[in-house]
Write a protein that binds this DNA or RNA. Structure first.
Lengths: 207, 207
DNA sequence: TCATTATAGAACAAGCGGAGAACCTGTCCA
DNA sequence: TGGACAGGTTCTCCGCTTGTTCTATAATGA
């Protein structure tokens, strides 16, 4: 059992886990220093050393191979629960989906999802309050680009505004109905609206 | 066997069990103080010390790695299925909980429950519709016989009627508030009402 | 009334994170 | 072949944070 990491060590480790795969080469200490806002190679080395002792970073015995993670660290990500879905971020009427910094996952019980690919968003605002979807609720979205009349959908309007609304398809227009009597239904030309998914589940925590 | 915890210690322990997994780093004493509304690090330290002696919190020998639970404490919650909770039946205003024939279980993601014993009911009727709890929703209930003002509780009235209502405790009476403007709040003598649990989570399926 | 519990607050010491310098060891190139 | 150079290693020093310890003060209850 590795000695638990200090806060800074954890931070650096998290950074490595996230950024390393995107880098063309394993970074040198100096490069990492710059990326992390440090000025002293020696300081960073001390932190990395701790990660090496914890078995998370490949030891580099005087070789110049840059910093890379251990196999163990690469495989370790999550406990591998079968029904974890990605938590993409927030959805609020009128803004694009706001991705959160740490792409996270959240467990979703089978009845709340479908066998098809799904993801989770957290609701911001009260636009669907009369459908029992409150600020802060998680919604489970099935990834689809079509929907039936009356379904609640994640719709992208003119490529920029993502909203959670009830869908009404008319011959020549698409109407997006909020469920909040203080808001107006919005009318669009079909070409303006792109379906990104359909609501299939919802969860709320009270603490 | 460790000496039993004081009320406050139990409270802090529960908080840790619930909140620690969501934190990016193990918190420092100061951070915890703020989260718990305390102003003195020293005070909290004494409480934590007691939890350490009870074997629930990892001892920190002058190291600054924050507060973390023991393995024992982390694994302790339930021996059984990961996060399957018993589904007891239906709850509707005005009738006892209607047990379903096959006592079933349903998976509940950790954020929707507490570390304490919980169970699940399915909602019948619209009495809490303005709180975003609709007919057919599942509600996760923490098994408790006390509740704080403003919490939504499963209350058994005169030993026969179970309802899901928002609780208001007054000196001489207990008021159960529905969240549906077409229904009336109900007033009872404290001896008539028995708390059976507190709402901690809610789930809905759209298919 | 005394014991227990919870809290505030002050004072202390050491862990920890960082800077910087010097050192060491391979690689490259004239 | 022997520098220059890049990059890893080791060291010391400093200041802030954070765990620890103590004392004092309420509140509560047997």
């Amino acid at each position: 059992m590795p000695p638990s990491l200090t806060r800074r060590q954890q931070e650096i480790y998290d950074y490595l886990r996230e950024q390393l795969p995107r880098m063309p080469h394993p970074p040198t200490l100096d490069e990492l220093c710059q990326a992390l806002g440090l000025k002293s190679r020696g300081s960073l080395h001390k932190q990395i050393q701790a990660l090496i002792e914890a078995g998370l970073v490949e030891p580099m015995n005087n070789l110049r191979r840059g910093i890379r993670l251990t196999e163990a660290a690469n495989e370790a990500p999550e406990g591998g629960e079968a029904d974890e879905l990605p938590l993409y971020g927030y959805i609020a009427a009128g803004q694009p989906i706001e991705a959160i910094a740490n792409p996270d996952t959240i467990a979703v019980p089978p009845p709340l999802r479908t066998p098809n690919p799904c993801y989770v968003l957290q609701v911001k605002g009260d636009s669907m309050i009369e459908e029992g979807i409150l600020d802060g609720d998680w919604v489970v979205i099935e990834q689809r680009d079509t929907a039936r009349n009356g379904e609640i959908v994640v719709a992208l309007v003119r490529g920029e505004e993502a909203t959670l609304k009830r869908l009404e398809k008319k011959p020549d227009e698409i109407v997006l109905h909020p469920a909040n009597s203080s808001m107006q239904a919005q009318h669009y030309h079909p070409s303006e609206v792109q379906i990104q998914g359909v609501l299939v589940g919802q969860m709320r925590s009270y603490h």
